[in-house]
Simulated scan of single mutants.
Amino acid sequence: MTELRPLAPADRDLVRRFLALRWGSATVMLDGRAIDAAALPGYIGLDGNGVAALATLLDEAGHSEIVTLDAVRPQSGLGTALVELAAQRARALGLGRLLARTTNDNLDALRFYQRRGFRLHRLAPGAIDREREADPAIPLLGRHGIPLRDEISLIRPLG
């Protein structure tokens, strides 16, 4: 079983390499801001093959946001465990909500988050089109051949 633990400063290079492999870069665009996800707090799980699970988090006024969430082995329970650790951390910081974002093509993420207590919060039509102007490497087509255009925010109250 993979044990999850908080990220430590010594993990940053490993996290940066992992995010580059899984996401293409450690830089994530959020509302037009370039965020270095490898510099954020979060949780990591290591196994004999390296990083098995990772979540990076961004704390802002009243909420914590899941910036990246990866479980290398789908349906292993690690993604759910990471979400629960993020929720516990946000509560401990006195934050009332946990946010997540995904793109219009990521039907698996929409299902995953909703099954873990998140509700649809905000649709940002054309958000990915605007981010593509800053980063032309963002593909035009996403999963299942769906045009990659919009961003969907989900929210989980932590009351």
Results as ranks from 00 to 15, higher is better:
G145F: 13
N106L: 01
V15C: 03
S64D: 02
S64Q: 11
R5T: 14
A81I: 09
L7N: 01
T103F: 06
L14H: 01
D70N: 09
A10C: 13
D59H: 10
H63P: 01
D105F: 07
T2H: 05
E65G: 15
A52R: 08
L7C: 05
A90N: 01
D11M: 11
R156Y: 13
R97V: 00
R119W: 02
L98H: 04
A55F: 07
A26S: 05
G94T: 02
D150A: 13
T68R: 08
L120Y: 03
A39Q: 08
R116F: 02
T2M: 14
I128D: 03
Q114V: 06
L99H: 08
L110Y: 01
G24K: 06
A100H: 10
G42R: 04
H144V: 03
F118T: 01
A87S: 04
I155F: 06
I35A: 05
I146L: 14
P41C: 15
L40M: 10
T2D: 03
S64G: 14
A26F: 02
A8R: 12
F118R: 09
R33F: 03
L58D: 11
P125S: 12
L14Q: 12
V28C: 07
N104R: 08
A71T: 01
D13T: 09
M29C: 06
A109Y: 03
